[in-house]
Amino acid sequence: MDSTIVAILVQDGIVNGAIYALLALSLVLVFAVTRVVFVPQGEFVAYGALTYAALDSGSTPGSLWLLCALGALAFVAGVIRRGPVLRLAVTSLVLPAVVTGLTLWLAPLKPGVAVNAALALAIVTPMAPYIYRIGFQPLAEASVLVLLIAAVAVHLVLAGLGLVFFGPEGSRATAFADFSLSLGDLTLPGQALWILGLTAALMAGLYGFFGFTLLGKALRATAVNRLGARLVGIATAQSGGIAFALAGAIGALSGILVVPLTTVYYDSGFVIGLKGFTAAIIAGMGSYPGAVLAALAVGVLESFSSFWASAFKEVIVFTAIIPVLLWRSLRHVTLEDEEE
């Protein structure tokens, strides 16, 4: 094992870790705002990737119809709960219709990377807030366990639909740009640079969003104290929907970023999501910079263990969180908490 191998492994680990970091961030966000452990996060990665790959090959992705169906369901759910009909109609009926129209028009034309990525994002992202409205809003007061199981139910549905829409085999898309950067022995593919750059940009964006915008501050307020936020006029349902939308967008974007680099399957997302979780737990499910660092560490650990003992890679990666957790819990002596 020479320095070149070390360098390549570190680079590979960091690129994967960047994806885990994005997922970890959105998991932390959703949990903080809604107390939902967002298990279906992985499906958004797979949907984003496979929708983009379908557009890339010039065909209409099946997920488009799911968007319309979810929009209609979300509209019905919103109307039943006496939401503002006009606004609901715009967000859950008109929006999918517009996206569908654009996709049907543009997809056969093979409009290029930027348009495809934008379309894939527009198809996949709104599903998340629709799912929040249909599935989680009625459970806002339920325990974390019930919310977790509801998330598992959504995961089952989305994974099953993923198989129907995208089939059991994987897909890959052409790279955003066909260039690579040479640094001595190390060759960085252009796509890896895209991943690192966009991840960094997205993190900076999130930092700005939470630090300096009213909406971002409102989300943070909800995360700190749900009741308090409601008392000062921040609607829990609204902030939940926004958190889900952000998570959906981040998931879909992660998928779009990785699909030119590796093959993505309808069920790829779960394990990627689980590693994002691992990073989020290591970071303590509350710290954004911590989650990013932990995610990069998980990626690098994974990369090295696949070199050293590939059959036991998952064993190593998933066992590694235990000493970390132990250290954390020893450091913070928790008193008996009264949350369930």
């Binding site: 689980l274 737990i281 998952e314 819990s329 928790t334 369930e340």
Partner: peptide
């Protein structure tokens, strides 16, 4: 090792244990 964790940490910690033991 894991029971020092609380709530969702425990859930996810045991998930990791389950993945690890499977392989």
């Amino acid at each position: 090792v894991t029971l020092r964790l609380r709530g969702h940490y425990l859930a996810l910690g045991t998930m990791a244990v389950a993945m690890s033991l499977y392989y």
